[in-house]
Lab assay of single mutants.
Amino acid sequence: MQRVNMIMAESPGLITICLLGYLLSAECTVFLDHENANKILNRPKRYNSGKLEEFVQGNLERECMEEKCSFEEAREVFENTERTTEFWKQYVDGDQCESNPCLNGGSCKDDINSYECWCPFGFEGKNCELDVTCNIKNGRCEQFCKNSADNKVVCSCTEGYRLAENQKSCEPAVPFPCGRVSVSQTSKLTRAETVFPDVDYVNSTEAETILDNITQSTQSFNDFTRVVGGEDAKPGQFPWQVVLNGKVDAFCGGSIVNEKWIVTAAHCVETGVKITVVAGEHNIEETEHTEQKRNVIRIIPHHNYNAAINKYNHDIALLELDEPLVLNSYVTPICIADKEYTNIFLKFGSGYVSGWGRVFHKGRSALVLQYLRVPLVDRATCLRSTKFTIYNNMFCAGFHEGGRDSCQGDSGGPHVTEVEGTSFLTGIISWGEECAMKGKYGIYTKVSRYVNWIKEKTKLT
């Protein structure tokens, strides 16, 4: 034993070699072989497995989906700052455009905790909710729209109204504003409101030439003092309507412009014939205590009207009353817009006519005020429907199939267009061939041609 100890002390290297040989010859039971080890760690190889990531292109799944990435790591994937920024906006807080917040056709661009709407022409605001041009839906104005110097929408209202708090709607500024039905039992019968379409306001006024200088022999019209197929109006439903009495009662109609003036057809009036105007009328054979009678003290036909040349060209006249009318729910003026808007309103496509005229061709006159909704007829169809001249200051309205029309005794009465609950004068009943005849239409004086003249002559002093 002493000898062994001496050998170990003198030859430590020998001992180490012996131990190493023993270990190498022993069977290893701690580690699995290569094949079995792979069965336990069965993990798919990654895209760049075996390579240094710093030297390969980034992978979106590896960089940002398996674990949260930084902007720089995302930049490695896209290799483009702009594309990385677009991805980053949604990656950080989701897609803010998912709810489609942009209105009126706006395009949404996502941002971090926010979004941006790219608005089409005519709109602005956070969600493109603000109209900035009158060309689109009248700028959301209830009545009139004008573009300011910086191309912003400025709404306005006709006389007797003021802008509401929203700067879009119009509200009454006087007790009985024009064009409004205020009798409670008839307010439910107000005709369907007309909503502004998209309009090209630059070209809204037709490029028409008034044929002022045409000389033409007097034409022989049949029954051209021209509501057939209409309905009984309720008291106060058309408070701007008046009836004219002269040699015979209810020979023509008219509309209240203001307390002192009536507008009617020029062919209705004769110099030297006494005319009485009755406002607030409903049943011409009954006294309903809503009527107001006034005498006409002055007749002003349009300066281009000449019955000797043509009885229905420039067929418009103004009547001055001896005493002002007292405005109330049964006696209310009709609204008159400017030339541009009167023309736009007419193009809405349908209007209402009213009167006490004959209820059928050569038949009896109506006792109760009649009204009828009539569609506008395109000019080409209008011209083809008659052998008589249709001037540019006239328009056609009615039904091709016949059966409904204005008729004798309705002449001078109103053709009105309702705009968001307020009625505007767009025409004056003038003439036609018979009444409600198939293929024939009622012919009306186009008020847009005469609004400046009306307003100039009827100013209240």
Rank of each mutant, 00 (worst) to 15 (best):
G13H: 12
L14G: 02
T16P: 03
T16I: 07
L20N: 01
Y22A: 10
S25I: 10
E27Q: 12
E27L: 02
V30W: 10
F31P: 15
D33M: 06
N38P: 15
K39L: 09
Y47F: 11
G50W: 06
E54P: 06
F55G: 07
G58D: 13
G58T: 14
E61V: 06
E66T: 06
R75A: 12
E82I: 10
E82A: 12
E82C: 08
R83V: 10
R83E: 05
E86C: 15
F87W: 10
Q90G: 09
D93T: 15
D95W: 10
Q96V: 13
Q96E: 13
Q96C: 14
E98P: 15
S99I: 10
N100D: 07
P101H: 14
P101A: 12
N104E: 08
S107N: 09
I112V: 11
N113V: 12
S114D: 13
C117Y: 01
C117N: 03
C119W: 01
F123V: 07
N127F: 11
R140T: 10
R140C: 12
E142A: 04
Q143S: 00
Q143I: 00
S148M: 09
V153P: 12
R162Q: 07
Q167L: 11
K168D: 03
K168T: 06
P172Y: 06
C178R: 00
G179E: 00
R180H: 07
V183E: 08
L189R: 08
T190Q: 12
R191D: 11
E193G: 11
T194P: 04
T194A: 06
F196Q: 06
P197G: 08
V202C: 15
A207E: 11
N213E: 08
I214Q: 10
I214R: 05
Q216E: 10
S217C: 11
F221N: 10
D223R: 11
G229T: 04
A233L: 07
G236K: 08
G236C: 03
Q241D: 03
L244Y: 03
K247Y: 02
V248A: 04
A250K: 05
G254E: 00
V257K: 01
N258R: 02
I262T: 01
C268E: 00
C268A: 00
V269R: 01
T271G: 09
G272A: 06
G280F: 02
N283S: 03
T287W: 10
E288G: 03
K293R: 12
R294C: 00
R294E: 00
V296F: 00
V296Y: 00
I309D: 13
N310C: 07
K311Q: 03
Y312M: 10
D315P: 01
L318G: 01
L319E: 00
V326Q: 13
V326K: 13
N328I: 02
Y330T: 02
V331C: 06
I334R: 00
C335P: 02
E340V: 12
L346V: 10
L346Y: 12
K347V: 03
F348Q: 11
G349I: 02
G351K: 02
G351E: 01
Y352E: 02
Y352T: 07
V353H: 09
G363L: 11
A366V: 04
V368G: 13
R373Q: 15
R373G: 06
D378C: 04
A380Y: 10
A380M: 04
C382F: 03
R384N: 14
I390K: 09
A397Q: 02
G398Y: 06
H400E: 13
G403F: 08
P414E: 06
T417G: 00
E418P: 11
E418T: 07
V419E: 02
V419M: 12
E420P: 01
E420W: 14
G421M: 04
S423H: 14
T426D: 00
T426I: 01
G427V: 01
G427D: 00
I428W: 14
I428L: 15
E434W: 14
A436C: 06
A436D: 11
A436T: 12
K440P: 05
K440Q: 14
Y441A: 08
I443E: 02
V447A: 08
K457N: 15
K457T: 04
T458F: 00
L460V: 03
L460E: 08
